[in-house]
């Protein structure tokens, strides 16, 4: 199950853990990504907290955690090769994995159809 936030992050939920990244729409808006800095292992975040920063050739953007939980894995590869996010935002460009602490957070997120409509409405 993949859920989406209004600030253009995705969460791929697998049991009580979730992989988190930014959406393909977000990477296309940012342009070439040149720097990524995320929370580190063991950090705990609440839904909406800053999870890190992505810098593109255009600007610095904060990543907001779509879910509350503890960071249990960090994708080292995107720190050395930030362009992975441009190339594969929804897969190889994942940022962190968290252990979900509050499943109710999911109610505040969108499914794929809702997110698609949300992006279309934002683009106008």
């Amino acid at each position: 199950m993949i859920k989406y936030s209004k600030s253009h992050e995705w969460a791929k939920i697998d049991g009580d853990t979730a992989e988190i990244g930014i959406t393909d729409y977000a990477q296309s808006q940012l342009g070439d990504i040149v720097f990524v800095e995320t929370s580190v292992l063991g950090d705990t975040v609440n839904q909406g907290d800053t999870l890190g920063t992505i810098e593109s050739t255009k600007a610095a953007s904060e990543i907001f955690s779509p879910l509350s939980g503890e960071v249990i894995a960090v994708n080292d590869q995107v720190e050395t090769s930030p362009q992975l996010i441009n190339e594969s935002a929804m897969d190889k460009g994942w940022l962190v994995k968290i252990k979900i602490s509050n499943p109710n957070d999911l109610d505040n997120l969108m499914d794929q159809d809702q997110y698609k409509k949300f992006v279309e409405s934002e683009a106008h």
């Binding site: 342009g31 070439d32 040149v34 050739t57």
Partner: peptide, 9 residues
């Protein structure tokens, strides 16, 4: 135009 294929390229 800020970019076409990408600023770095």
């Amino acid at each position: 135009p800020v970019e076409y294929q990408g600023s770095l390229a």
